[in-house]
Design a protein around this nucleic acid. Structure first.
Ligand SMILES: [Mn+2]
Ligand SMILES: [Mn+2]
Ligand SMILES: [Zn+2]
Ligand SMILES: [Zn+2]
Lengths: 140, 140
DNA sequence: TCGTTAATTGAGATTGAGTATCAATATTAC
DNA sequence: GTAATATTGATACTCAATCTCAATTAACGA
């Protein structure tokens, strides 16, 4: 499903309004490759000559996350990083403390053990994030 | 090893100075139970009638982390949370999105799989953090 | 103990990401 | 089209975190 369409469904279900500003923010999201924070998204909006205020960009991001158009991926330098993927499926991240490179990985064994731990604590998981910090092979 | 002693060794190795302000910050760390951010630590310093400026408290925290006196545990509301433990051993966290409760857990299977993934990517892990978000048993 | 050197401190200014305000405007349902 | 309501944007504001720099202090060797 297309991002605009996905967001439209969400908006309708919530009784919100599908404004041109929100559409323009989604265009900017699509133009970005990789991981980004809200400030970077705001820059992308301006770069595309879309006129959306900083306030509205900041207000739109949580909606995009709730709609599943973007995914909160990790924290870097105290900022929440997001990522867009048309066909998202879950993964975790390694973060190189020297060059800042982000490596994505999947490990179903870890996912399974997380669920086991949650059952043990009667904890209803809604999301999780694993970040491994260290030094990547290019920085040794 | 005591926290003061541990920090002293670190300070000496780095050629820094063991000031009374730094000692007072460590006293404040010891007075805190559980997880805290830097602002909360600064409050604790004041509560103990220790006179250390905000700037120095903020400057000291990264040193404490580097010395292993405190451990960076997770991000909550965009803030880095730390924790002190005289006999620290690694654990991960569940965070209840309703009440804010933090549950600690250990799962050696996950630790092992992380190492496996790192070997696969030739990544030299220096640290990691897993946060599971969801709803705790008291909030169902 | 004294003096030299470099690290550290603190008060206050500054930065900057993120939020609040509120009148003007746009969207939706009917 | 109209009414009801959500949204926008310019701007002011908040507040954690950092920077500045003169004054202070720890460390160390003579
Ligand atoms: Mn990713
Ligand atoms: Mn903990
Ligand atoms: Zn690297
Ligand atoms: Zn709870």
């Amino acid at each position: 499903m297309d991002a605009q369409e996905k967001f439209e469904n969400f908006i309708r279900k919530k009784g919100l309004k599908n404004t041109s500003e929100r559409k323009r923010v989604i265009e900017a999201v699509k133009s970005l490759k990789g991981h980004f924070d809200t400030e970077k998204l705001y820059s992308a909006v301006k770069r595309l000559n879309k006129n959306v205020s900083r306030a509205s960009v900041y207000r739109t991001v949580p909606l995009l996350a709730a709609a599943g158009v973007v995914h909160e991926s990790m924290h870097k330098d105290g900022r929440t990083m997001y990522e867009y993927s048309s066909d998202y499926h879950h993964h975790d991240h390694m973060l190189c403390i020297k060059c800042g490179r982000i490596i994505e990985f999947e490990e179903s064994g870890i996912e399974g053990l997380q669920e086991k731990v949650c059952r043990k604590h009667r904890f209803k998981m809604t999301g999780h994030g694993l970040v491994i910090k260290g030094i990547c092979d290019k920085c040794v």
